Simulated scan of single mutants.
Amino acid sequence: MSVLLESSSTSAAMRRNFWAGVWRVMKRKPSRLVGAVLMAGFAFMGVFGPMFYPDPLPRDPNMIIKPPSWEHWLGTDDQGRDVIALVVTGSRYVLLAALVTAVITVVVGTGIGLFSGFKRGRWDTVLMRLTDMKLTIPGLPLLLVLSTVWKFNSAVQMGSVLGLLSWGGVARAVRSQTLSLRERGFIEAARGLGLSTRHIVGKELLPSMAPYIAMNMLIAITAGVYAQVGLFFLGVLPYESNNWGQMLNTAVFRSGALTVPSALGYLLGPLLAILLLTLAIVLVVDAMDEIFNPRLREE
């Protein structure tokens, strides 16, 4: 019983020390705190933001493509709807699709990379050739072809397709990390004790690579946002849901935002959202790099 209590207290102390270290790293550069706050803000906006607006958004024929004002800080669109309201309500589709993209990218890529790097031999050869084939397939042309037969009616569908087309790089990177870690002493000791492959991969290798995988997931979110916004901006997907890419397409090609000053706010709204989301992810990844890198913490 005393052993269990001692183990529990040790684990609690380690968690306290970890979070204390996280707080020190975040305080060292205030910009990292800004990034964390922005990330939390986007998460809140994606989950709860649309609840603050009626569905559909009210349209005012007398307010079509108006410049920014006290009532509409970024102006209105070609249907008289507030641009900020469009950005907020359109965030759910974009962020959910990006999250699904990142989860599938990381899960598939990490699974293949771990298994391939740890097993080596025939499995490694087969999986890496499959990965190489995946990396040679041009993503954008394939998405353009798929969009002609699949309308991507939901964010989950969009994220699933993007994720299944994006795991190659993660698989290659995780395999390289696995090849390095499998020669370390603690892995050799685990194999010497006769522990199963599932235990070694799940309990020894995976926790060691968790920070690297988490950073890849954040980067995959950014890539997912860019990919789907680009597709909607090009006009190859239907306008069945409000999102930032559809806003950019409408602002440029229907509202003339590049030549009409009053429509500039309609273009800036989604661009600012994408810029701030990217900035938040970059700042959080920078903080994570120092949190999980002992040499950086000591500098």
Rank of each mutant, 00 (worst) to 15 (best):
W167P: 03
V229G: 08
R129F: 10
G46K: 05
I291M: 14
V37H: 06
A97L: 08
L99E: 06
W23G: 01
H72P: 13
T131P: 05
T178I: 09
L143R: 02
S208M: 14
N17Y: 02
L237H: 02
R182G: 06
L74Q: 06
V161G: 07
F118V: 09
L296A: 13
M215W: 03
L276A: 15
G169L: 06
L258K: 13
L143N: 05
L275D: 00
P270S: 10
A155G: 04
A280G: 15
G90F: 02
A223N: 14
R191T: 00
Y53D: 07
L130C: 12
F42V: 05
L277G: 04
V126N: 11
S255H: 05
T197R: 11
A223H: 09
G117S: 08
R297I: 11
T178E: 03
F44K: 03
A287K: 02
V225F: 06
P138E: 13
L277T: 01
K134M: 15
I221M: 15
M215E: 08
A97K: 01
M158H: 01
D82R: 02
A36N: 00
G21V: 01
V83T: 09
L96G: 01
M217D: 11
P54C: 14
S2G: 01
L164P: 09
R254F: 11
R297D: 12
K27F: 05
L267K: 07
R254S: 14
R92E: 09
V145E: 11
M26P: 00
Q177N: 15
